[in-house]
Amino acid sequence: MASGVKPRVKVPATATAGEVITIKTLISHTMESGQRKDSDGNTIPRSIINRFHVTFNDETVIDVVLEPAISTNPYFEFQATVPESGTFNFTWYDDDGSVYEDSKEVSVG
């Protein structure tokens, strides 16, 4: 499922140096588990996002391995330390090889 995938990320625009901020992310994706069957009784093949990686100025904040037990439209909430102004990069890796990206700038001052 490479169409209709829309990442949404909520990050405060400003922070003080060293502040711990809360980040919320949501990406629209069916996360087909590979357990469901269609109306003809055939198993619908698995198609999920299997990895979610967040970096700030190229330093890892959190790296998540996702399994089929993660709900449709995967949602994550976590904390990040902001040592200086910079950019958060969010990357989602799909089973089909697609990569979805989003980034948010945070200014310290």
Partner: peptide
Amino acid sequence: VATFKFGPLAGA
């Protein structure tokens, strides 16, 4: 279900 790996900038 999932595995969370925390990096150096994880706030908590």
